[in-house]
Simulated assay, not measured.
Amino acid sequence: MNRALSEMTVLVTGASRGIGAAIAKRFAMVGMNICIHYLQAHEEANETARACIKLGGQVMTASADLRDRTQVIRLKERMDMQGFKPDILVNNAAVSHYGMLSDLTDEVWDDVMALNLRGTFICSQLFMPHMISQRFGRIINISSVWGEKGASCEALYAATKGGMNALTKSLAKELAPSGVTVNAVAPGVVDTEMMAGFDQAEKQALQEDIPAGRFAQPDEIASLVYFLALPESGYINGQIISPNGGWQT
């Protein structure tokens, strides 16, 4: 692949805020074409878009429910019309869930699975043909340390991320002959809105349990995603990389 990263296009799902927004901004720093996907957070997505434009990126925003294949197809059609054919796909969109497995309903299980895991499957399936045809591409899945270690009261969330990890490793083997890599980034605790449900005492206890003594910043996760997208990272494939401050090793 002879094109510079600045000439490529990236689709970041769930990019209106948090880790997704940080990833979009990191790619904007090298002037990439960036599609900022969101579901309902229209104003936040526009704020991220404005920040990316200031950093030098070429930007479009698009809303779609990734649980619905028809909506993802329409997302792809809108991107095609604007010349945004992703060389890099970052499957970041997800929802968390906290609660005992004994209290879960079928509806909640299906809904979280549909976004976190099936959404990753649908996006990967629809956007990878372009990568295969040009014999270059990067699919980077944002997983979680819980997908590897499991977590009490987060069995559903952990199950979706464990499934994502297995999908990552399997798809990496399928696509490697076509020059496409598939990797997952599985962060530990990141200082985002997902931590809003924890009170100060809980956050303090959690920080004390992490050898680094702090939570990760979204920019730190974004830097790792950026590295995995580089052309020179082509021999890193099928890996689950967990930036977690030494917390879960």
Rank of each mutant, 00 (worst) to 15 (best):
F84K: 08
K161D: 00
K76F: 08
E148I: 11
P218E: 02
G213V: 09
Q125G: 07
G137M: 01
P218I: 06
T61H: 09
E174P: 02
H37F: 06
D199L: 08
I210E: 02
R67E: 04
A62D: 09
G18A: 14
F215Q: 09
R69C: 08
I140E: 00
P129I: 12
L75D: 04
A21D: 01
R118V: 03
N165A: 11
V190S: 03
A155Y: 03
Y235M: 14
G188W: 11
I236W: 00
L206F: 05
I19L: 01
M60H: 06
L167E: 01
N91K: 05
G18T: 06
G238I: 00
K25M: 05
N237D: 01
Q248Y: 13
D106G: 01
D199V: 06
D80T: 11
G197A: 07
L55G: 07
M1Q: 12
M128I: 11
V72I: 15
M113W: 15
A196F: 05
R78Q: 13
F27K: 11
E208M: 14
Q125S: 15
P231Y: 08
N46A: 07
I139A: 13
L230F: 03
L230G: 12
K203Q: 15
G197I: 11
S102W: 02
V190N: 13
R135H: 06
A186P: 00
M60A: 01
H42C: 09
A15I: 11
F198M: 15
Y157V: 01
A51G: 04
S233V: 04
D209Y: 01
A158H: 06
